[in-house]
Each structure stands twice: as C-alpha cells, then as structure tokens.
Write a protein that binds this DNA or RNA. Structure first.
Length: 590
DNA sequence: GCCGTTTTCGGCCCGACTGTTTTCAGTCG
C-alpha cells in the first residue's frame, strides 16, 4: 500500500508548509490528521476512490478528497505543488530540530533568509541571528544544541533497547522516599516498535514535595544533560542519548496522569472531546465537572482545588467516560474508543494463550542449540508443540540443509519426539522462496515434512508486481503452511518487499496459509497495521520467534505486542490452537 | 480544513516549562 504512504507523506508535508506559512493552525491540524489516517489505514486508498467511499472516512473532507483523487489519478496534486512553491523545501526538515517551531522558522526565513538546516548552522556560527525579536542568547544556544542532537540522534530506538534503559530509571525512581507508585508511560507502554523518548510517571505522597523528586531524578547516574526541570516535571538526556521525561503527581492523581502521558495524543484528543460532550473536562490531573473546574482555584504544578470525578486509576477515568477499559496497545485512535463505547473491544491475546512456537532453528543449520535442548526449553515454557524449521539449501551462509541432510534431520526430529514426552515436535523446514516464487525444495521433499515455513531472504528490492506474484506463488504451493517474515523488512534498516496485501490476504485466507508475525527484533514483520488488515481480511496469523537458541524463545514477548496492537485475539492466531486443531489446520490444505 | 440529534457557523484538548518578557508567545508532549 505504498500509495497510502506516499499520500500520507504528502499531507504531512502539506501541513508543515501551512504551519510555516502561518495559516490557521486548525487547517494544518486537519491535514496532519489526514496524513495519520492514511498511514494507519488497513485497506488501499485506491479502492475507496474507485468505490466513491472517501467521504465516509473520518477526517477526509472536501479539500483532502480532491487532493487524494487527483493524486490517485495522476500521481501529483496541483494544490500541493502550488503550496510547495511558496515555502522553500529546506525549511520542512527544520521542524525536527528540538526547540524550533514553525513560528521561529518563518522568522529566520523572512528576517535572515535562512532556507535550510545547513544555512541555519552557518548563521549561528557567523552570529547572524543576533538582534532578532524574541531570540536571545539562550534561545540561540538551545537551537545549537538541537542541531547537535539531530546529528547524533538519527533514528528512534528499538523497544528492546529502550525498555532496558527505562526500567533502570524506573528502578531508581522507586527507591526515592515519597514515591509510592511509578511506571512507564508513553509509546513504550503502548508497545510501539520504535521509541522517540521515554516517559515516566511517579505518584508522590503529600509529605514530600514533587519538586524534590524531579530534582533527584536529574541527579541520577546515567544522566548526561538536563533539558529542563520544574516543580512537577523534568526532562533529561541519558549518556546513551535517549531522552527521558518524568512527570510527578500526587498519588491520588496517578491514574489520570499515566492515562494522559500514555497517549497517544490522538487517542487523548478524542477522549477529551468525549468528556466535553458530557460536560466534563479531562487533563493530567483528572476528570472534572467542567462547571466546577472553571470556578476552581488553579496553580501551576498543583492539582485544581476541586474534587475529581475520576483520577486515582486509569480504569476509573475510562469508566466515568462510559467506556470499557482500553488496553494501552490499542490507544492510537484507530477505532478503539468507538469499540469501547459499544462494548466491543477485542479480548486481546496474551502470552498465556500461546501453545507453541512454529519457526525455530537448531545446530543442524545456524542455530546454537540441539533439537533436544530446544524441545526441553519449549517444554519448560509450557508449550504443547514445537516446530523445528532449519534453513533450506539456498541459505549457504546459514548452513542451509540439502534435501538429503534435511531428510536425515527429519528422522532425528522424529526420534527426539519419541524420546521427549510432554511436547509434540513437528519436523519442518524454513524453505526459501526463490526470486520467482518457486521453493528451494520440490513437493517430493516437502511432503515428507510435518510443517513448512516459506520465507523470502534474498532479492528484497523487487517491484510490487514481481514481489506480490512471488509470494502468491508460495502461498498457492500445497505444502506451505505459513509465510515467514512476509516482507523481509528490518526496522530502521531495510524496507522489505512492497507487497500488494489485498491479493496476499485473499490467497492466504482462501488456501488456509497462515501469515507470520516474526517476533524477532528488529524484524517484527508483519507490522501491527498490516497484521490487523490481515485479520480483517479473514487470515490466520502465526506468531513465531525464529529462535536460533533457547534464549531466542524470549522474543515471543515482542511478537505478542505486535499482535495486540493488531487487535488480535487467540482465535486469530494458529499457535493458540491445541495440537489437534493445529493438525486439522495443516490437513485442510494438504 | 473538518464537523454537526442542541450548531451549516463557530467551534476545534490541555497544561508545563522556557525565554524574553513586564503579561505572554512559542514549543512540547
């Protein structure tokens, strides 16, 4: 759905141009929303254009409809091209510099002729910013730091890495006297695949000041730089260049605060609109009667002097708004609020629902442990079954198995299965999907296996038509049970195959072929929104670790999180089936 | 620009912190 992505980028840029031009801020907000809606969409926007259903999509109005229709037809938008002429393209990346916003960028452009990041850096060195209204020495220093950070920061951190840092700071926070409760909020709590910064919330007892906590936080070991610190919040950068924000509230307001700072921003905006409809107002202190709240005395960094309708727990806040409790992974304004109103939220999959792992490696190819060691480790995790799926012959670099070696390996797996009680071992293989969609082994070999994962490993830069035909051919192959890491993308490193998912989903669901959520970081492939589209299209998912050692089984944690963000219930995931049902799933295609 | 069983015009989420200021704009989340 690269068309969706292209259009999403166009609207994002359009919004930035509007901000810099100083147009009504709500116009820019409206287009930003269109950008997000396009990005999150689980279907191809082209279909909506052809069916004439663009109007039914929330956030898309007259202007954006026109842009979308023109872009789908011609690959361009005249409205966008006109707007882009008015603002130098180099100004848009400047919005990513911390401390610089649209107003300041417009000022720098109009008063000093600065049109890109490089010119800004030079202007600072040359002292050209002096004398600008509202720009003092400190502001210049802030921009300078923002420029340095931009060079160093580069990419968002993976959840695995961010989690470790966040937990260490959380641990330190909980040792402080007066901190009764504390937790991670923000995108890390929502389990997004990458993290921009870490948010921590602390509930503080009344006998100490909140400022003593924010102050102590800035003194923690591992703090490289303090970005700001006030009576109730503080921001620091760690020596690994990760920003951590701390917000403190009195214990009684912890629920409202962690709700607020878990986000997403879009989820919260909608929630606050809902509060308004009920004559309430929602902020980080709590949910209040609007009439009482307006009259109440308010001081910065202090709860308002009025009793909250809800504030102590998140569940209280959601309940008071007439909603089911919404799990953090769902809070993206992708329909979860409407579902919660209707009492129709999915019962999300949890780790306890997983009965087995269906994509793992052993010493036979490039794994670190034997069949027996992997089986015993899986048994300890409480699994009912485990598929051993070593690489096929094309994966020379991974010591891929020839047909002859594979068949011997199958015998070894069957012997181990006899010997080890309490877990069923499936003799399988991760077979390469070759460039043209044929497989690394022909059917005479595949039919000897209990389980086949077919995965693309090479030629991952094919165009959409070739890539889609390639995966479709694998799906149509009789003995293929699941497509492993279907796109081959690597987070922050590799785009992966540009598949036409509507076709993939149709074939997968019709043939009874599962699609994998590869839990290995940095794969996480399929992604959350694509996996959700697959579920909507009636496909079965399989969450597998691709473990290359017994430790690799731990990756399951990340795969579950992607599935939860995809609204998956146990009914959508084949490795939540008991062994008998799994066998029926396999038999149906054979 | 988008939206609407109180609105087709007039709203649109809300507060903390910083810096450059004498009361507030800009930025951030």
């Amino acid at each position: 759905m690269s068309l969706n992505n292209d259009l999403s980028d166009l609207f994002k840029t359009f919004a930035a141009i509007m901000e810099i031009k100083g147009e009504a801020v709500f116009k820019a907000i409206a287009f930003s929303k269109v950008a997000r809606v396009l990005n999150d969409m689980t279907f191809d926007i082209k279909d909506a254009v052809e069916k004439g259903t663009l109007d039914e999509i929330e956030g898309i109005g007259k202007s954006s409809r026109k842009i979308i229709e023109e872009f789908v037809a011609t690959g361009r938008s005249s409205d966008f091209d006109d707007a882009a002429k008015a603002v130098p393209a180099g100004l848009i990346p400047m919005l990513q510099i911390s401390g610089l916003g649209p107003k300041t960028i417009a000022l720098l452009w109009k008063e000093r002729g600065i049109t890109c990041v490089e010119e800004l850096a030079k202007a600072i060195v040359d002292g050209k910013l002096a004398g600008l209204k509202g720009i003092g020495d400190k502001k210049i220093e802030q921009i300078k730091q923002g420029l340095t950070m931009r060079e160093q920061a580069g990419k968002r951190l993976g959840i695995g890495d961010a989690q470790i840092v966040a937990e260490e700071f959380l641990r330190q926070l909980l040792t402080l006297k007066g901190v009764e409760i504390a937790d991670i909020a923000g995108s890390l709590r929502r389990r997004k695949e990458t993290i921009g910064d870490v948010d921590l919330i602390a509930g503080v007892v009344t006998s100490v000041t909140m400022e003593s906590i924010t102050k102590a936080f800035t003194q923690f070991p591992g703090v490289a730089r303090i970005l700001g610190q006030g009576p109730s919040k503080a921001s620091i950068v760690t020596d690994q260049n990760l920003q951590i924000d701390l917000r403190t509230v009195p214990v009684d307001h912890f629920g409202a605060a962690i709700q607020y700072f878990t986000g997403s921003k879009e989820h919260n905006i909608k929630l606050r609109g809902l509060a308004q409809d009920k004559g309430l107002t929602l902020n980080e202190w709590g949910l209040y009667q609007l009439s009482e709240y307006d009259k109440a005395k308010k001081e910065t960094a202090q709860p308002p002097a009025v009793k909250a309708v809800a504030s102590k727990t998140e569940a209280d806040v959601y309940r008071a708004l007439g909603l089911e409790y919404i799990e953090p992974e769902l809070r993206e304004d992708r329909g979860e609020i409407e579902a919660a109103q209707a009492g129709k939220l999915p019962a999300l999959i949890t780790r306890a629902d997983i009965r087995g792992d269906l994509h793992t490696h052993t010493t036979a190819s490039d794994g670190a442990n034997t069949i027996e060691q992997m089986a015993e480790a899986a048994k300890k995790l409480g699994y009912a079954y485990l598929a051993i799926t070593d690489h096929s012959k094309s994966q020379m670099i991974a010591n891929g198995l020839t047909a002859e070696r594979l068949l011997k390996h199958v015998e070894a797996i069957r012997r181990a299965d006899e010997k080890i009680k309490g877990i069923k071992l499936l003799a399988g293989c991760e077979v390469d999907i070759l460039v043209d969609g044929s497989l690394d082994f022909d059917e005479s070999v595949l039919k000897e296996l209990d389980w086949v994962v077919a995965s693309p490993h090479v030629s991952l830069r094919q165009d959409a038509a070739k890539a889609t035909a390639r995966i479709l051919r694998a799906i149509e192959t009789r003995y293929v049970n699941v497509i492993g890491h279907p796109t081959g993308r690597l987070i922050n490193q590799r785009e992966g195959l540009p598949l036409e998912f509507a076709k993939i989903f149709e074939a997968a669901s019709r043939t009874g072929t599962a699609l994998e959520i590869n839990a290995g970081y940095p794969r996480l492939d399929l992604t959350d929104t694509i996996a959700r589209a697959a579920i909507d299209a009636g496909c079965m998912l399989s969450i597998n670790t691709d473990a290359h050692s017994v430790e690799g089984f731990d990756w399951m944690f990340f795969g579950i999180q992607v599935a939860r963000r995809a609204w998956a219930t146990p009914a959508n995931v084949i490795n939540c089936m008991n062994y008998k049902s799994l066998q029926q799933f396999i038999d149906r295609k054979r």
